[in-house]
Write a protein that binds this DNA or RNA. Sequence first.
DNA 1: GTCTATAAACTGATAGAC
DNA 2: GTCTATCAGTTTATAGAC
Lengths: 214, 214
Amino acid sequence: MKNPDNPSETVEKILHAATVLFSERGFPETSLRTITGLADVNLASVNYHFGSKKELIQAVFARFMNPFSQGIDRRLDEIAEREDGELDTEALLRIVFSSLLEMTDSLNEDPQRFMRLCALAYSQAQEHLRHFIVANYGETYRRFITLLRNSVGDGTDAEAFWRSYFSMGAAVFTLSAYEPILSILRADFGQDSTMDEVIALLIPAMVRILKAKP
Amino acid sequence: MKNPDNPSETVEKILHAATVLFSERGFPETSLRTITGLADVNLASVNYHFGSKKELIQAVFARFMNPFSQGIDRRLDEIAEREDGELDTEALLRIVFSSLLEMTDSLNEDPQRFMRLCALAYSQAQEHLRHFIVANYGETYRRFITLLRNSVGDGTDAEAFWRSYFSMGAAVFTLSAYEPILSILRADFGQDSTMDEVIALLIPAMVRILKAKP
DNA sequence: GTCTATAAACTGATAGAC
DNA sequence: GTCTATCAGTTTATAGAC
């Protein structure tokens, strides 16, 4: 992007439209024409402002990931400063989810959309995107995962490693498909759940996966 | 397909090549030219044998899903016939995983490939595919999910419902990304895990998610 | 059933006027 | 910074010869 610190109105319109369309259809299924059409800007403006479609995809992620990783780092810093800094498994998971919701709230975007983009980043042929994410946010990720490993207690490294992916899968899968799953719950049981309620069920479930057997 | 019961060699070559390429790149990223090139058949043969790219995608799924759902039904039938038919949560999960591995083994395909196709079916714009799966295999799914619900004990329906999706996410996410996750385990810990070992860790983790609190 | 050739419709990207 | 027009490359799908 030409000037990431002061995005023009056109840039913001493109980023929002791209977020909506990418999360609903996937990256290759969404053409630049569809994005510029929804954003009501000229087709050529994507290449002018972002350079290419790949760089637009990365910019969409950076818009979410920058405040998200900063939120996690800030919360970890605050706890590290305190003498009695508690860092049990549940507290660490709460840090992630509160950072996630704070970020989507301040961007005025749906958390499900961001989770869906994350799922797409790992299920579609977007090698450039995974490299971009690891290169820019890998440090915060490694800091967190080390703390998480220390919080889950004994057990072999390989066990703890796979359990962390089991719990990540539970979270990413459920939250990225939140709306369709919810519509099944409504149809089959006539019930409803807010995302806060789902996260309240999800956190203890993740703790139970992550913790070594009692 | 013209004659699903006796697929020609051309049809089988196309289905295998499509399985490999779709699972590695996703559906829209894989062109019919790439598929017919790898299968070493003529470009026009896909439209001749399957009608369209959409129907090819559905045929790829049917090849896996038919023996998979039949395997689950057969095992459930066998247990239902026995007087002492045990149907606890772990036994039900073992039925799914043994049906999965039996199916991929008899097709001589990689289970990870099939799990990756499943993840893609729900993360890409393939509405037609999700309809196809629900229409053709929904009955076995509902039979299984009812037994699973009965096995997990008390708790509200909404809780049990969300927990079943948490555990499904843990399984689909981990197994569909088995190779890339394994390469991280090798790089960071110098360790290795077979898929059988991962499933052996996964089943108790899923049971712990599914079961209401002790 | 298999092939070639081609239609018809997209795609991302860019040159150049304003 | 925005626009039109267009290029060059791709895609799925099909018509028609063999």
